[in-house]
């Protein structure tokens, strides 16, 4: 390893805390999390349920504000932004892949993929062209007009990956992307993520399965609201 390129940080979390209040009981889901993720990294966040994994994913995904601490995403401080501002940041910088796929069943594949581009204010013709290109990228160039109901689980998740890719986001945030898939489809989706990683994408994968996490380049273990381990995975 003799590369001298200084890696550019995409995600910088410093002293992130998240408090939930339910009645008089206060619960601290994140207790001071510091993470830096550089451009092109493939990071897996592992942790059992109740570890604060989902809370971390919500904050990373700009779906929620931290109670304390700062979060720089692509150099922009997003920790105190309003809901409308966060919506804009999510649209430009984050591509989501969910466990439940979250495709709109009434729309054909390409119209699911184009959704982020609609909210980015991109014209119809360009949206269609870019959506089809993203679908070709995930190997579904022949399924452009199919509705989710006509696709297998693995294919649906690949449509979701195409939707995460289409807006060229800073990071792809995959929350248990293989949780609803059989082993063959799991392999297909993870292979796709590997491929995206090799082409230079920054990917954050959240999972509780160690075999899935092993595909990443770097593993972060979260337990009781804190990062307990941060190590590179031997290739």
């Amino acid at each position: 390893m003799s590369r001298l390129i200084v890696p550019e940080p995409v995600v910088e979390l410093a002293g992130i805390r998240k408090m939930y209040r339910s009645g008089s009981i206060e619960f601290e889901a994140l207790r001071g999390v510091d993470i830096t993720i550089n451009q092109g990294e493939y990071v897996a966040v592992i942790g059992p349920s109740g570890s604060g994994k989902s809370t971390l994913m919500n904050i990373l995904g700009c779906l929620d504000n931290p109670s304390d601490g700062t979060y720089l995403l692509g150099g922009e401080d997003v920790s105190t932004m309003s809901e409308a501002q966060l919506a804009h940041v999510r649209n430009r910088r984050i591509g989501f892949v969910f466990q439940q796929f979250n495709l709109l069943t009434s729309l054909p594949a390409w119209r699911n993929v184009e959704l982020p581009l609609i909210y980015a204010g991109i014209g119809r013709a360009e949206r269609r062209e870019r959506s089809i290109r993203a679908l070709e990228r995930v190997g579904l160039g022949d399924r452009v007009e199919n509705r989710p109901g006509e696709l297998s689980g693995g294919q649906q998740q690949r449509v979701a990956v195409a939707r995460a890719l289409v807006s060229e986001p800073d990071i792809i945030l995959a929350d248990e992307p293989t949780g609803n898939l059989d082993s063959v489809s799991t392999e297909a989706v993870l292979g796709l993520l590997d491929e995206l990683h090799h082409s230079g994408r920054t990917i954050v994968l959240i999972t509780h399965e160690h075999e899935v996490a092993a595909r990443a380049q770097r593993n972060l273990v979260i337990r009781d609201g804190q990062i307990t381990s941060d190590e590179l995975v031997a290739a």
Partner: peptide, 16 residues
Amino acid sequence: IREIGLRKALGAAPRV
């Protein structure tokens, strides 16, 4: 609700 959540996650502001 899920559709609304998804649209918001993908960048739809509340006013949209």
